[in-house]
Design a protein around this nucleic acid. Structure first.
Lengths: 193, 193
DNA sequence: CGTCTATTTGAATGTACTCAAAAGCGGTGG
DNA sequence: CCACCGCTTTTGAGTACATTCAAATAGACG
């Protein structure tokens, strides 16, 4: 396995010496997730935080009417988990599954706690990670409140360039919070102008 | 000034000895914000993270059509800032102002950095803070995508019990992402059944 | 190749907004 | 203490945005 990519990700925010690097890597568990397979299902406890090395995962809820709502697409170099479940070790509300065959590095809750003790600057790393996630989500929330579906679709294409080529339109609609039928209409309308 | 409330807030997540407590308090700056006065305006750099000791602040954006969208109400015992602006020291996109005369404790960016160095466990404290904020916002985003305005209004009342008595319906509508007229209709409809 | 799912299209419906006008309410100054 | 002003809330009619349901077509995968 090649750890360069995940190390680069970490070293965007904190620096590690050789020993720290080795220790960090020793806590990671590589895993392959086949397309359509689950990494987490609602009701289970989320035992791992996952770094996507290659492929594409999605994080979603299913509402009372059975509709899927996607909270996040995690492609190469993204982190993904059910943060609430992971931190509190209570049953998850989110599902995580693979839209493509995917390779991840997993860090268990137990290993994460060891890591914080042995190399406290990882507190800083994950603080920054979560801050960035928070900011991105805040922007998305404000967009969802104020913008039309067509605007949100344009913003999706900017935020995830080329992802549309890899996933179905149904997935995009579930991310935008609209029906696939309506997204189809939006595309037709946009193509005309 | 009475620091018991903010210390209790901190000690929910980390423990402090007497010296640490004193140092933490020495970095706080008390401030009174009169109703309708700003703590932050879009375009300015957010220099402070604010803890609300008493009163009520709101965090909002103004979209291109001039509409206000409220990201958060911060009442007693909540923290509030423009996190992105604060962390990166770039111009804010959010406004913060007071809906009531409000007392806050402010911590500047410079003091925050000192705090992380002198008492590193505050990295942990703010990591947990931001994680919780992230989780709350994720739930709100999923609600906004999947639920009707009426459902969201019910959830607002659960999340902020009694707040409706303190703020105008217009503020609630700006939080829910609907017009005040439509919220009025929802209330009428709910009152009937 | 056949089956299953995704996408397109259209008509009818529901949810929420816009604009306008009237009524209610709160604060302020005289 | 009351009258007035400005802002909030209510109400309604017309409109725009988005969903639902159904059916036909296209595409993907085993």
């Amino acid at each position: 396995m090649n750890y360069d990519q995940i190390l680069q990700n970490v070293e965007k925010h904190i620096s590690l010496d050789a020993g720290e690097t080795d220790y960090f890597i020793s806590l990671l568990e590589p895993k392959v997730v086949k397309r359509k397979k689950f990494l987490l299902q609602a009701g289970e406890v989320c035992h791992f935080t996952n770094y996507v090395h290659k492929g594409c995962l999605r994080n979603y809820t299913i509402d009372d009417r059975g509709f899927v709502h996607i909270s996040l697409f995690a492609i190469e170099d993204w982190w993904i988990s059910d943060l609430h479940s992971f931190l509190t070790q209570t049953p998850a509300t989110l599902y995580i599954d693979a839209l493509e065959d995917t390779e991840v590095f997993q860090m268990s809750k137990a290993n994460m706690e060891k890591l914080y003790i042995i190399i406290p600057k990882f507190e800083r790393f994950f603080r920054i990670m979560h801050q960035n996630a928070f900011i991105a989500q805040q922007q998305r929330l404000m967009q969802n409140i104020s913008d039309t579906a067509e605007d949100r679709y344009r913003q999706f294409k900017e935020k995830y360039p080329r992802l549309e080529l890899r996933i179905s339109q149904k997935q995009v609609a579930a991310y935008l919070g609209i029906t696939p039928e309506f997204l189809s209409m939006i595309k037709r309308k946009m193509a005309k102008s």
